[in-house]
Amino acid sequence: MIIHHPLLGPRDASEFVYLGDASLMNRPNPKSETAAEDFHRYQYLRDNPVGQHRELWYHEQGDRSWLVVTRNTLTHDITKVELARDVARSQK
């Protein structure tokens, strides 16, 4: 696979390390009354979709950016790649 890094252009996916669903960026509030259940869902449950999937890749053999990659799990087509830091900041 090739991931089009938003800053560096196309790079072989073997330079990257995969983590999983981009929802892992949404760490729950540890002070919430439902924190135990919130963290269980956050850490363990997945949509695991057939089709479009927003997921986290780390450019370990590159610039060490975490990226949010939108990729189709059936065709592997990638339609969007963002810097995770920018996504995280825009979500705040």
């Binding site: 986290l56 780390y58 995770a84």
Partner: peptide, 18 residues
């Protein structure tokens, strides 16, 4: 060493980017 660095970058970039 490798996995921890990756984890710390995840925390830095994805959880506490500010």
């Amino acid at each position: 060493a490798g996995p921890v660095f990756r984890h710390l970058e995840f925390v830095r970039q994805c959880l506490y980017p500010d």
